[in-house]
Structures are given as C-alpha cells and as structure tokens.
Design a protein around this nucleic acid. Structure first.
Lengths: 245, 245
DNA sequence: AAGTGGTCTAGACCACCGC
DNA sequence: CGGTGGTCTAGACCACTTC
C-alpha cells in the first residue's frame, strides 16, 4: 500500500458538494417517493447556478437514488428499484455475496495447445500455448462448480502462476487488468466424471457459464468455463425495459 | 394499429440533431480511436453553444460510440467494447434479435388462485386470483420454450386479455408499464410432459428463466417462468469489473 | 396558470494532456 | 504553452404536469 499517496487535496467541485448535501437531506429526512426540493429552490439554498444543481442531481440519478419526472419534480427512488449493471466477480467474491465461504482444489495445472474453441475465443492462432488451470470450486466446503481457465502463455506462463493467489490479481500485477467479460449461460447435462466430482448424479443437469474476459482496450485475456451444480447455483440479474438511466 | 397516432411532429432538439450529425461523421469517415472534432470546432460547425455540443457528445458516450479523455480529446470507441446493460425484451423481440421468427401456441388460459410461489413473488395474499397464460413459444416454427405467465386479476382480467396481441402492450394500455424485471436463471431437468411439448428427450436439461416484472414505482405486475430448450437457447450478457460507466 | 424539469445561449475560468 | 475537456454562471424559453 506504499502508493504515491497523492496529495491532491481532492479539490471539491461544487456539484459534488451539492450532491452530497442533497444525499444527506434525503438520508436524514426523506422517504422513497418523497419529492426532493425543486431545482430552483436548491439553487437558492446552496447559492449555485441551475446547471450545477442539475449536474448534482444527475449524479444522484446515476446512482439510482432519485429520479426525475418531467413537469412534476424529482423524487427519492425506492432502494430496491435500483438497477445496477451486473458486475464481473471472481468466484470468491461471488460466493461471499451469497454468504458462502469459497475454497478451491486444483485438479490440473498445465501448459496446453489451445483447442479451436479456446483459440477462437481468445483470438489466438490454433495451437498456441495456453496456461490451463482446472479447479474444483467449493462453497462452505461442499462442491459447487468445476472451473477451467485458459490464459495465453504470453500473458501468464505456468511457472509464474502462484497457487492460492487470486488469478485476477496476478493478471493485474502483470499489467493485464480484466475489465469486462462476455458471458454465455446455458444448461447442460453433466458427464459422469463431472457428476462424480460435483457429488451429484451422473447425467444431472448443470449450469454452464462461459466467459471471455478482456482488458480496457479489448485485448482478450482469459477464457473460462465454469460448470455449476444446478441445485446449488442460480444466476440472477436485473433487466430494464427503458433507459431508466 | 389504429392508435391515437400522435401528431407530435417529433420536435427535434438541437442536441439530438448534432448527435446524429456527429454519428454520421463517425460512420462515414472515422475509425475506432480516431479523434472526433473538438467541442469548440463542433460549436462553430453546427452553430450551437458549447453545452449543446456537450450534451450531444454525452448521448454518444452513453451509447458507447465515443469516449472522452480529459485534456486530450474525444475519440471513437471500439464497437466491441460497448457494454450495454441487459434489456428486458419480449419473446418476440428476443427471437428477432437472434434472427428467428417467433410464434406462439396457447396451451392454457385460465383464472387461478395464486400458489405460494406466485403470491410471494407478486406480493399478493395467498389464494388471490391471477390470470394464467401458458404458451408454447416457437422460433422458426420449431418449439423453443414453454412460458407460464401470471398476472393479478386486478391488473388484467382474463376476459380483457386479447390473444395474439403483445402482453406488455396490453398491460401498458391498461396503465401498467413494465419497466424492469428481476430474473433468475437456473438449469433444470425437464419432466417428460414438458420434454414432449418441446420435442426433446424426457429428462433432458433445460434453461429456466423466472422473471418478476415491476412498474416504474415498484408495483409488481407479472410473474413469468420460461423454460427454454438447452440445445436451442443460450443466455448472453456482458459484465464489467469497474465503473466503466 | 403556476410550477416543474428539459433545452439552450454566450460567455468564463479550471484541470489536464502533449509538445 | 496551446488545445482539450470539465466546471460554472446568469440568464431565457420550451414541454410537461398539476390544479
């Protein structure tokens, strides 16, 4: 943590201060669906121009704390109405969010030539070498998923990989920050070997999540496939119909 | 389609026009990572104030078409880096997005007392009456999914329901605009009856998507469960790790 | 008709990037 | 240092909701 400890004094912008003041007002004295003071009132209240008020409100709208109704007013939103875009989380983070303790068991760690699916997904020429990590993922010490991760050798060589440390953290340290991923979710039928690893009936149903992760600039870093026990894992997300914004 | 045919002339706002002009410029003569003309140039070019230019650019940033770099410029984004929040779509829209033609076959239409799962999800007292619609959903005339929809009778009575017309459109016309939904995705094993309806083996795996839809103000409108053939349907989404914005 | 948020102007200065 | 986007002002009129 011995970072450069920026001394920037955090120059406070007016709209940030106004937003904080409004947030405080809401938290201390307003309830969901209550009206926030009008923009013109807020101008007078905080001694700023209307645009500054609007920018402050815009950040709150972004957070989902309030919403605008044209011609009527700005209102406090219901907390559970907030629709955040889904986040890319590690298995450990995902389990923690479900109140479970994550652990792992390495099943295999090897350098392999990418098969066509992996090569295609990662944009590699077929036969390129990849570090392959196969892990049994446990939640509260019971099998939850089988995970196969493929990373190009040029990004993370097998000898560099340190077991027990977060993969994303290691990739970030190597200059490959994972920022986004495309995920494909499908239902599959387990093969008997996977079934026995997961402790379920052979030929049981399971949820397969395939992920291709990329850096900020679109460079593909990781191909991962995780097969979850259908009886222990569901995937949840919020979708919106309009630009609720 | 004999709606009220609003005559609003679609009053075109300047920032919308400017955004369209910039979009056109990008599509016809710029490539990813190219710089867009500066805001001051755009002011002069389109004869509008800076704020209007900025609002136009803001909409394009929202779309992921361009991104700003403070102190440097505004640049065209890479198309595949765009991360849109997942949208709530009707089956017809969903299939159209996959290049398939959607059709339906009504399996049942009845008024029922909500079972505990439906009542809980919709916030109804157990035993409340619900309109239940069970449909076989086809894509390119082949079975794709079985869908059960439950709507409180107080929102849509069974006699009001018009077959063949979009449910969401009917709900909207009744003053219940569906704006967002919580979805739960899981893998299940089909029962033989469902398997035969879908034209797959009994006990095949399938993807189950459960949806609770709400209005702008959080009123729960619809409980739906759709069971998709695992071999014809996958669920895709983009997730981000940081506030990529 | 009064009040709200939405759009728009014509300026100004600040913070940051690259040369 | 010049040019860029980011913040901010003090007005104005438009579009919508509410009474």
């Amino acid at each position: 943590m011995t970072e450069q400890q920026q001394q920037t004094v955090a120059r406070t912008y007016k709209y940030v201060a106004v937003a904080a003041a409004i947030r405080h007002t809401i938290e201390t004295s307003l309830s969901p669906f209550d009206a926030v003071p009008s923009e013109r009132d807020l101008m007078a209240l905080y001694g700023v121009s209307r645009m500054t008020v609007r920018q402050a409100i815009a950040t709150l709208v972004d957070e989902g704390l309030v919403y605008n109704v044209h011609g009527s007013g700005t209102y406090v939103g219901a907390p559970d109405l907030v629709s955040k875009p889904p986040k890319l989380t590690s298995f450990t983070e995902d389990m923690a969010g479900r109140g479970l303790k994550a652990s792992s068991q390495i099943l295999a760690l090897s350098l392999e030539r990418a098969d066509s699916a992996v090569a295609l997904s990662l944009g590699l020429s077929p036969g390129s070498e990849c570090t392959h990590i196969r892990r049994l993922r446990l939640a509260d010490d019971k099998p939850m998923a089988i995970e196969d991760v493929y990373v190009p050798r040029t990004i993370l060589d097998i000898e560099q990989f340190r077991l027990g440390e977060s993969l994303y953290q290691q990739l970030g340290a190597a200059g490959y920050d994972v920022l986004r991923a495309e995920q494909t979710i499908q239902a599959i039928t387990l093969d008997p070997e996977a079934g026995s690893l997961l402790g379920v009936a052979p030929n049981a149903s399971a949820l397969s999540v395939t992920r291709v992760s990329s850096s900020r600039h679109g460079q593909r870093i990781e191909f991962a496939r995780t097969i979850y026990r259908a009886d222990r894992y569901t995937f949840q997300l919020t979708v919106t119909r309009d630009a609720e914004k």
